[in-house]
Computed example of a mutant assay.
Amino acid sequence: MTTLHSTSRLAALGGAALLALSACSASTASEPAPEAPAAEEAPESSAFPVTIEHEFGETVIEAEPERIVAIGWGDLDNLLALDVPPVGYFGALSEGLLPWAADQIDGSEPEFLGYTTEVDYEQIAALEPDLIIAVQGTAVDDESYRLLDEIAPTVARPAGMGGWQVGREDGTRQIAAALGRADEGEELLRELSAQFEAARQAYPALEGATGVSVITYDASLYYAFAPIDGRGAFLEDLGLEWPEAVRDQYDGTTFSVELSPEEVGILDGDVVLFMVDEPEYDPIADNGLFERFDADLIAVTAETRTAISLNTPLSTAYAIEHLTPVIAEALDD
């Protein structure tokens, strides 16, 4: 029998397991341009100059940057996690800082410049940056890269990766290297790996369960996110597996498997996560086939949905704490 769950129930699901997860995590850590927020624990000056290879060539960073602008929707998180707040940033799905990013701010907030898909080059230039980061969560192309690089040295996504295809580890490593903080970047990834391990230990039902993250815009098509995307990677890192029938349809190159309304039966397993706007969303109202599912159906909304979409160390740690108990409860039903 299908059971509906919502991440809005999280307030009632804290408990000892979440406290244990928190304990096992060390930290997850025209007008004049505004002053740059202070960075902590600056790298050794010997770290510079650094040369970063990327999709559009290579960028030499001669000295430790002090005024950074973040373009991609994951770039801000990585900079904050590395204790190097930018002077300005472009956001993903909302104006202002999301909870996990706000927790990293100690001092003045960086300036919100708009959305990643609508980059304003004049705004960027007005901030007088000495480095632009356009790595994770952006589709910068040759022309937009040229315009950015005319303003300040610009580091883009790793070579060979398409727009929007930079995952958590590649994004963190590329940005950390540009800041002369490669070791700190590796430490962030190790800490996050430890948090996933703690989650799997706290909730043994996760390991080997079948689950898939799905989005639909008007119920005419459904998209099952692959592990190449943050929404699929999160479940995989928790120990869940894709339903075999979905995996069989995946070609290994795209973000998702596209399904017609008549094909959604292959999504069935233990849990199905729906990326939606409203916590009351009922997939059965759109498609009666979901009523036949053995899987529990979970509506993932608001900050939790954004957290697994951004797929950064900071946002993923937030999702581990807030979404994992909901998935585990569904598996225990």
Rank of each mutant, 00 (worst) to 15 (best):
F225K: 11
T254M: 00
G208M: 08
G230Y: 00
A224S: 11
Y223S: 12
D237L: 11
A198C: 08
E241R: 13
W242Q: 02
A226S: 15
Q195W: 01
D229C: 09
A194V: 10
Y250G: 13
P243L: 14
Q195C: 03
A224Y: 04
L235E: 12
T216L: 03
P204G: 07
Q249D: 14
L221T: 06
A226R: 14
A202P: 00
V246W: 12
T210D: 10
L238E: 09
D251G: 05
R231P: 12
S213R: 06
T254D: 00
W242F: 09
T210Q: 12
L238R: 10
I228W: 05
L192I: 04
F255I: 14
L221K: 07
L221R: 06
S193G: 06
P227A: 07
E236D: 10
L192G: 05
V257L: 15
F196H: 04
F225N: 11
V246N: 11
E241H: 13
A199L: 07
Y222N: 04
G232E: 01
S213A: 15
V214I: 11
Q195H: 06
Q195Y: 01
A224P: 06
R247F: 14
E207M: 12
G208N: 08
L238M: 11
A226W: 12
S213M: 13
A224N: 05
L238K: 08
S213Q: 07
T254W: 00
P204I: 02
S256Y: 10
L240D: 09
I215C: 05
V212S: 04
R231V: 02
Y217F: 10
A219L: 03
E207Y: 07
L206Q: 02
D229E: 12
F196W: 04
D251Q: 04
A219I: 05
T253N: 13
Y203H: 04
G230T: 09
F234N: 15
D237V: 03
G208R: 07
A245D: 14
D248L: 13
Y217M: 08
Y217D: 07
A245V: 03
Y250T: 15
T210L: 12
A219Y: 04
S220A: 05
E207P: 03
D218Q: 08
G211M: 07
V212P: 00
L192W: 00
A199Y: 06
E197W: 06
A233V: 01
A202F: 02
R200T: 03
G230N: 09
A202K: 02
S256A: 15
S193C: 00
I215S: 12
V212Y: 01
G252F: 15
G232F: 00
G208Q: 08
L240P: 03
Y217R: 09
L206T: 06
E197R: 10
L238P: 08
E236P: 08
I228N: 12
Q201N: 04
G211S: 06
D218L: 01
D237E: 14
Y223G: 10
S213G: 10
T210C: 09
Y222E: 02
E191R: 03
